[in-house]
Computed example of a mutant assay.
Amino acid sequence: MPIEIKELHIKIKVDENQDRSPGGGFSPKEKQKLIDQCIEQILEVLGKQKER
């Protein structure tokens, strides 16, 4: 049974005193690892949708 989200609350905290390095301060290796994890999760979700 699908889940419907009717409300979504997002809270963020912005610290103006923090360094403003591009990319959020991640090394290229960490960025690639994060991208790979995202792609893996997306492919998992798409695979589950095809099973239905």
Rank of each mutant, 00 (worst) to 15 (best):
K13Y: 07
E7Y: 04
F26E: 13
L46I: 03
P22K: 12
Q18Y: 11
R20N: 09
E16F: 13
C38L: 11
P2D: 08
Q41D: 08
I3W: 12
L8Q: 14
N17R: 05
V14W: 14
Q41I: 00
K50Y: 03
E44H: 08
K11G: 13
C38A: 14
L34Q: 11
E7K: 05
V14M: 12
I35V: 09
L43M: 07
Q32F: 09
G24I: 06
I3H: 15
E4K: 15
E40M: 01
G24A: 07
K6N: 15
S21N: 15
K29L: 12
G25K: 07
V14K: 13
V45I: 12
I5R: 11
K13N: 09
R52F: 06
K6W: 09
D36L: 02
E7F: 05
E51R: 10
E7D: 15
I35A: 00
I10F: 12
E40K: 00
N17L: 04
R52P: 01
V14T: 10
P28K: 09
P28Q: 06
S21D: 15
M1Q: 09
G24C: 07
D36N: 14
I3Q: 10
I12M: 07
G23N: 07
I12F: 12
E7L: 04
F26Q: 09
H9E: 11
V45M: 04
L34T: 13
V14P: 02
Q37H: 06
N17F: 03
K50I: 00
K29P: 00
P2A: 05
D36A: 08
E30C: 04
G23L: 08
E44K: 05
E30Q: 15
K13L: 11
D15V: 07
Q41C: 01
Q18P: 04
D19R: 11
K11Q: 13
D19V: 02
S21V: 15
R52Q: 09
K11R: 12
P22W: 11
H9P: 04
G24D: 06
V45P: 00
R52D: 03
G25V: 05
G47I: 00
F26T: 04
E30F: 07
F26I: 00
S27H: 06
K50A: 00
Q49R: 14
E30I: 08
D19G: 06
G24T: 06
Q41N: 03
K48T: 09
V45H: 03
D36S: 10
L8F: 14
I42Q: 02
I3L: 14
R20L: 03
E44R: 04
I12P: 01
E51D: 06
E16V: 11
L34F: 11
Q49L: 13
I3P: 02
I10E: 10
I35M: 01
D15M: 04
R52L: 05
S21K: 07
K48D: 11
K11T: 13
K6Q: 15
I35D: 00
N17T: 05
P22G: 05
E44I: 02
R20Y: 03
I5W: 09
E4G: 06
S27K: 14
I5K: 09
G24V: 05
P2F: 02
H9G: 08
N17Q: 05
K48Q: 11
E30M: 08
G23Y: 06
L34K: 11
P28T: 08
E30G: 07
D15F: 08
C38P: 00
